[in-house]
């Protein structure tokens, strides 16, 4: 603090001798017209530069940027809507495809069932036909076997009878006896 005071008094002292050396150059009125003139020149120059070039340019750049931002936001909004729409369409397509697939599966199942049923019916018919045929064959075989048995029994009975007795063999009664035996 003491220093500053000292410097100031020294400065004030010095101002007496030389106006240019120390003191407050701010209060040296001889320089005022000069400063005022050049200040006015400067301010007018800055004003002209600002109002003619700089400010309109910056204003247009800011407006353009604002416009671009607004447009971009609108576009983003649009794209977002499009994306939502696309998603909805995709989901719808997916659901459609799913239900169609279900239909196709059901139809295929029904077709297969029908074919299967038909095949089963054909097979059943074949089986029953074969079974009937077999049965017939078995019956025929059994019948022929029966006849053979009767013949064999008749032959054997004739042989047995001729072996044990010398009596004349009555073919008719022998046959009747054998067949009654076979039935019984």
């Amino acid at each position: 603090m003491a220093t500053t005071t000292h410097t100031n008094t020294e400065a004030a002292h010095g101002a007496d001798h030389a106006a240019e050396a120390v003191g407050m150059p701010q209060l040296d009125f001889s320089s005022f017209p000069n400063q005022i003139f050049w200040l006015i020149v400067t301010l007018v120059a800055i004003y002209l530069v600002l109002s003619r070039v700089a400010l309109p340019r910056i204003a247009s750049v800011l407006a353009e940027r604002q416009g671009t931002i607004t447009k971009d936001i609108a576009r983003a909004e649009e794209l977002k809507q499009a994306a939502v729409d696309a998603e909805a369409a995709y989901n719808k397509a997916l659901a459609d495809a799913r239900s169609e697939a279900q239909e196709i599966i059901a139809a295929a199942k029904a077709d297969i069932q029908k074919e299967l049923d038909a095949a089963v019916a054909v097979a059943d018919a074949e089986i029953s036909a074969k079974a009937a045929e077999s049965e017939k064959a078995i019956t025929a075989i059994r019948d022929s076997a029966m006849t053979s048995v009767t013949d064999v029994a008749n032959d054997i009975a004739k042989d047995i009878v001729s072996a044990v007795s010398t009596a004349k063999i009555d073919a008719k009664s022998l046959k009747a006896a054998v067949s009654s035996r076979l039935k019984g």
Binding site: S31, A45, V49
Partner: peptide
């Protein structure tokens, strides 16, 4: 220093114009 004399004050004022 006349009113039109180029001084250090006028130099630095014009430099503000340059800076702007």
């Amino acid at each position: 220093i006349h009113w039109y004399t180029p001084t250090n004050a006028s130099l630095w004022m014009l430099l503000t114009v340059v800076a702007v």
